[in-house]
């Protein structure tokens, strides 16, 4: 009986330990996520599984053309996958004659599928603090593997 209890405690301890390691890796290094939605076609198709890394946003190493994952400005529980089109200070054409300058510490995000994407054209520049990670490549399904960046 006693050995069973100690075994149980040991197992729970191991689960907590490995849970913490997994948490740290997936939060600070890299992770895999499934992207649903058609806003990034033809780069990422709906339900593709993508490898993401957290280092470049952490060290503010974001450049134009990167595909990033950010918290949605209008719904913080949802994540969006978009392409960085404008960096602070860039002038973005928003209409036929109108344009907007991206303010400091913000980026301009747009989906590759411009007809079917709610992005900075709808909610304006996105603060850098909302960017969580950079998408690196598609790992699943096979036919899309490594098909971007």
């Amino acid at each position: 009986m006693k050995s069973l209890t100690s075994k149980l405690i040991k197992t729970v301890g191991y689960i907590i330990q490995y849970g913490c390691v997994v948490h740290c890796v997936s939060k600070y290094l890299g992770d895999i996520v499934m992207c649903s939605g058609r806003s990034m076609e033809p780069t990422v198709y709906s339900d593709d599984i993508v490898f993401i890394e957290h280092l470049s946003p952490r060290f503010r190493y974001i450049s134009r053309g990167d595909v990033i994952i950010a918290k949605c400005p209008t719904n913080p529980k949802q994540y969006i996958c978009k392409r960085v089109v404008g960096l602070p200070g860039d002038k973005i054409k928003t209409g036929f004659t109108t344009s907007q300058t991206v303010p400091p510490a913000h980026v301009w995000l747009e989906g590759d599928n411009r007809e079917n994407s709610s992005d900075s054209r709808a909610y304006g520049p996105v603060p850098l603090g909302l960017i969580c990670s950079r998408a690196m490549f598609v790992i699943w399904p096979f036919k899309h593997i490594g098909s971007f960046v």
């Binding site: 330990q17 849970g19 913490c20 390691v21 948490h23 740290c24």
Partner: peptide
């Protein structure tokens, strides 16, 4: 090596 991730997770959560 064991303690660091536990500590970081604690601070995070």
């Amino acid at each position: 090596i064991i303690g660091l991730p536990i500590g970081v997770t604690f601070l995070d959560l």
